[in-house]
Design a protein around this nucleic acid. Structure first.
Lengths: 136, 136
DNA sequence: GTACGTGCAAATGATTTGCGTTAAG
DNA sequence: CTTAACGCAAATCATTTGCACGTAC
């Protein structure tokens, strides 16, 4: 069976990739491309933004990262425990949220869908974060 | 209380806005900006893409449209019955999917979340559409 | 009549690409 | 060694903006 794991073997772990992965594992706030770039540049001062772009795309294709999009901006994460998101409609802030119950429930519903082979599910909860609510 | 409905009153229903709304109501396949532009241009040949952009943004802010983002591209819809999405990881194709059960279940879980005021939820089911699966 | 919307062209911002150089395996 | 990755600068693509003119209310 063709598994993702076989693909992982072909990855060249360059310094740049190692630092990008390390940065994302230490920052679970779903950083944007620029935030990853700024973060990684502290360790690798000569890294280019093009390399950050290329690698975020590459690592996402290889299955080592997940890309999410809020208000038109790409954000990345390295968290592989399937989870859900709380998203603030006002400021775009995004937080992980776990509910195994909901994950199980969604996957059970997924099994009944025809003409689509479901691999994963993710629920987004949209609303207002504490900060934005107070500012209203 | 400041409701969305009070805002709706201030909308100037120009030809351009009317056609954009009509197009989206007739096309539930989550069109991109370019697709909306091409579609509306058949009726209003002189409309500019800037106007399409301005109005999609404006109408989304006014609550008449929903914006979703797949693979970095914005898509729009005018469907206000809350619903879920089936998204193909391969080609980005997106289809509506209804499950009242799942909607109820998610909202029940949402009520228990603290520090975040949840307004709506939407579950994305990721996988492969029939066409992409056959091509593998 | 007036304020807001439009179309156009130019500006911005995000992302991708081409290519000579560098480094991982 | 050899091939894939890097860094840089230029190119492309999506989206926004400024402004003179037009139109909904």
């Amino acid at each position: 069976m063709a598994m993702k794991t076989t693909e992982k073997a072909d990855i060249k772990y360059t310094n740049q990739r190692v630092e990008i992965l390390a940065f994302l594992r230490e920052h679970d706030g779903h950083p944007t491309v620029d935030e990853v770039y700024d973060g990684v540049r502290k360790k690798l001062t000569r890294i280019s933004k093009a390399t950050v772009y290329k690698n975020l795309k590459f690592l996402t294709e290889k299955g080592l990262l997940e890309e999410v999009n809020v208000k038109g901006v790409s954000r990345f994460e390295a968290n592989f425990i399937p989870h859900h998101h709380l998203i603030c409609r006002e400021c775009g802030m995004m937080e992980d949220f776990n509910s195994e119950q909901l994950m199980d429930y969604s996957m059970k519903i997924a099994e009944e869908i025809e003409g689509f082979t479901i691999v994963s599910t993710s629920t987004n909860f949209y609303g207002l974060c504490k900060k934005c609510k107070e500012e209203m």
